[in-house]
């Protein structure tokens, strides 16, 4: 009896979670092997591209935290990418090149923006929530369009990259790549802890049935808002990386197209799985690069692929892998 009392739910869920952690670990190993491989193939260009992939993987995973686990479809998440990129641009224009300070600044602005816009957006549900987050995202977008000191619409070039603990990342694509990978792994571990914590269980419960949650004594708003803020802050870290990767910032990072792309990455990878959106980001950007090289109408084929994916595997790449048993999802 005591064994059944203290043992976690012996059903499918823990095994599925373990499978996903394993899948994420496999992805991380592949990511770690990528730079030497690119160097061996004499294609170091891929290291810089890869950094972009990893940054979007962070953003997609952060969006999944609220979209997948909290059923909050934010259509304005690119704003947080933007806060991260401009944190780099603005601080470095004042001579502050330290990556950790830039990340902190991006997080601070994002937390404030998420607190205010989230508190308002969470008064609505469903499609209204999507629209109001889109509207706030556009407001941030147009704010930076009109920020002429930093180039406005044209963007702002960075003369150098950030430094990490005094180590300058300028001209060191490999180092930037591994810094990004370390951030991705650390943030995945953080998100994984969060969704399996007390807080995560409440968040998931609200997704499943908010009225029931109120009837056992939880006021959903504060938990949803907290998750919304956490997600925005993590997304801004991806923005800090993107500014360093491109050595250029512009409002294009925060356009609503970008918000849509983040949602596509989450859906493609598998909603509510954390590891899935990481794979989704890589898959979406690989398709973009690959199809883009083949045809200028690549978006048409990408759209077709997305439709097929949603029709035949609503749980995205994760669902596909679990169905084929590769992730040992089924008990």
């Amino acid at each position: 009896m005591t064994e059944t009392l203290t043992a976690p739910a012996a059903g499918r869920a823990p095994r599925r979670i373990a499978g996903r952690v394993k899948a994420a670990a496999c992805l991380f190993v592949l990511f770690a092997l990528m730079p030497p491989l690119a160097a061996a193939l004499d294609d170091p260009f891929w290291i810089l591209i890869g950094t972009r992939f990893l940054a979007y993987a962070i953003a997609a995973m952060a969006l999944d935290l609220i979209l997948g686990y909290g059923a909050m479809v934010s259509f304005g998440h690119a704003a947080y990418l933007g806060f991260g990129t401009y944190a780099v641009a603005i601080l470095s224009s004042y001579g502050i090149h330290d990556l950790s300070l830039q990340i902190l600044a991006g997080i601070a602005v994002s937390a404030l923006f998420a607190l205010v816009t989230g508190a308002i957006s969470l008064r609505t549900r469903g499609v209204y929530f999507i629209m109001i987050t889109l509207a706030f995202g556009q407001m941030a977008f147009f704010f930076f369009i009109s920020l002429s000191a930093y180039g406005g619409d044209d963007g702002y070039g960075l003369t150098q990259r950030s430094s990490l603990f005094g180590f300058d990342l300028t001209g060191r694509d490999g180092a930037l790549y591994y810094v990004t990978l370390a951030l991705l792994i650390g943030l995945f571990a953080l998100c994984h802890r969060i969704v399996n914590s007390r807080f995560g269980r409440v968040l998931t419960g609200i997704r499943e049935n908010p009225v029931r949650m109120e009837a056992v004594g939880f006021a959903p708003f504060r938990y949803q808002l907290t998750a919304f803020i956490i997600s925005g802050c993590i997304t801004s870290i991806a923005g800090v990386i993107l500014a360093n990767q491109a050595q250029f910032v512009s409002p294009a990072f925060m356009s609503w197209h970008r918000s849509g792309e983040l949602i596509v990455m989450v859906v493609l990878g598998g909603v509510g799985t954390l590891a899935g959106p990481i794979a989704g980001a890589v898959a979406a950007l690989t398709l973009e690069e690959g199809l883009g090289a083949l045809s200028e109408h690549w978006k048409l084929f990408f759209g077709l692929f997305l439709v097929l994916m949603v029709l035949f595997s609503p749980r995205g790449l994760t669902g596909l892998l679990e169905k084929t048993g590769l992730m040992r999802g089924k008990s």
Binding site: L5, S197, R201, G217, T226
Partner: peptide
């Protein structure tokens, strides 16, 4: 267990795994 959690301690705990919290499960 969620109904127990609502009255036992804060739910703003982000790190410890909830599935193995003996007090809640018991």
């Amino acid at each position: 267990a969620l109904a127990v959690q609502a009255r036992k301690g804060s739910s703003f705990r982000f790190f410890a795994p909830v599935a193995t919290e003996a007090a809640l499960n018991d």
